[in-house]
Design a protein around this nucleic acid. Sequence first.
DNA 1: CTGAAAGCGCTAACAT
DNA 2: ATGTTAGCGCTTTCAG
Lengths: 352, 352
Amino acid sequence: MRKRTTLKDVAQEAGVTAATVSYVINNTPGQSIRPETRKRVLQAARRLNYMPNAHARTLRSRNVPCVGVVLRRNLSVPRFSQMAFGIQTRLEEDGYNVLLLGNRTDALGHADYASAYLAGRVGGIIFIGIENEGPDAESLKVLSDESAPLVVFDCQQQADTYSTVDLDYSGGARLITSRVLERGCRRVVYLRPRIDTAQERLREQGVRDMCETSGAELLVREAPVDLHNIDVWDERYTVGNTEDGLKLSEELMETARGVLEEARDGDAVITSWATWTHFFRKVAPERRLVYAELANNGENWLAADFYTRLPNYETGIACAEEILSLMRGNAPSARIIKLTNVIEPRLEPRQH
Amino acid sequence: MRKRTTLKDVAQEAGVTAATVSYVINNTPGQSIRPETRKRVLQAARRLNYMPNAHARTLRSRNVPCVGVVLRRNLSVPRFSQMAFGIQTRLEEDGYNVLLLGNRTDALGHADYASAYLAGRVGGIIFIGIENEGPDAESLKVLSDESAPLVVFDCQQQADTYSTVDLDYSGGARLITSRVLERGCRRVVYLRPRIDTAQERLREQGVRDMCETSGAELLVREAPVDLHNIDVWDERYTVGNTEDGLKLSEELMETARGVLEEARDGDAVITSWATWTHFFRKVAPERRLVYAELANNGENWLAADFYTRLPNYETGIACAEEILSLMRGNAPSARIIKLTNVIEPRLEPRQH
DNA sequence: CTGAAAGCGCTAACAT
DNA sequence: ATGTTAGCGCTTTCAG
């Protein structure tokens, strides 16, 4: 960044002092400027491509037009990119930009998002987590000591120094299950990952509740996805189909075969994750089961009979609104986002 | 952002002057500090949660640890989020962060990414475009006047004041087509969008070249995707299945039906975009055609027989490396990324 | 080896 | 209605 045109340059060009330029540029309330002066200043500014230096401004005004976003997974995963986009969209409405932050520990032992806040690079932080790993205790302490505006998503944590946003996993599961049962299925296979988090417990509980209420039989089966290989699964979005990824896919296919052997036509298969339905279709395109998905992110949307589309974009907006609220000085809050967005792809091969 | 601990606070706590603290914190070369002093300073800094103010630092040093990323489409579109992630990953290795910038015009008439540069918020800009709309001429002029480091991706533009990165669309198309022909297909249907851009011309040319070389018959057909409804297509990733989106899907399905009527088993269908194959499978699961896709982004990866996986993540890395190079003062360059990443999903229903 | 001081570009209180 | 001036927190030259 080489020397650029400053307030003083503009002042000189317009034949006024720096303060006057500042008043004009900022439309400072309570300062009356002669229209003719204002015009001269504005013209000079435009002629010189003047733009106030953001750092000098922030240094003076203590106003940071920037929010840090930390993704516990990564941007290439649709669920996360959709949330990030929601956040970006909403924040830009209010003149804030998103600074992408990593989730690594820097030389000084702080997570880099904590550092970014301490360094004044961001006025607040949105942490998009997964339940089993929210912000670390150390960072949380630093941030709360500084009373940093912080929104934590999807971590199912208690908190009074920061805001939380979570999804209503059990409600969503109940909803989908009830739709399945409405179709007359009397037997449900629920395929869940081998992950023991609050989210997965809530989901299973939701499915179970509805089945019990209506007297349907429930079989719970596990897919070979756990905390060790979950990153392998996501590699598909970056480096592509790795050997490990293919191996995992083959295991999933094997799981699908197993489930299909137990299932009778007319039964329902509810999968916890969206992409799994595909394996069933691939293994047995001819079988007539009812497929439902708890968490679809807009991909493979023709595969299942119906599914809950996770409102990622809208949730991003909710997180953004929460951080804006905190930055305005409001007290932290806890929100639960309802999962009501049930989709039944209407496209069917037309009969000729 | 309330008052935070500063260099002076640390200096006072450690019983030295501000300069000394600065030397210690920055390990300033050529300054020798007594080990005991250094230790005192470091301890004081840690005790106070001290972190140098980034704005003050930038103001002094003119070194901006931040690169702006502009997406002409948006972050929720897989191709773009994957690129953004590649950019983020590479930049963070060198200590830079990504600032997401919009592509809107601000009050002063500059695109906001141009403003961000002028305001010193970013040390360089990566513009991820689509051919028919790169950075506007006005912004380009401002940025080149200031000799701003700028990398423009996928705009097929000539340039000597900034760097460009593009994909080898025709090479990719030739590659896939040759694979199709290797399978013995003598007739190829190429389904392309109704969009007249350099990219689409290159693709069609690639397909055509290979067909001519090997004497295969080529039918080119158009899908009802054009510059007016291309955003509708992308809405799937944010707001979900809109009415317009469903309408478009139905039109695509209709297109698939038309193509299927013309095609004979054993023919190949090459689609320009990845998700389209699905419609064919849905309409006629029993037909035995060879499906290939020119541009798959890791979604629906079980649908086609083979496809070129766009190296979005790697391309993001290339863009990041290019901007780093420019920021180091190197001259602009133009790169073409080869499309060699052909995938043939190996998962087939096992025979029992 | 450490301290004093100037100044990066801007804002805002105070003067005129 | 406009000018003067004192910092915001840091880096860096220059003295000691």
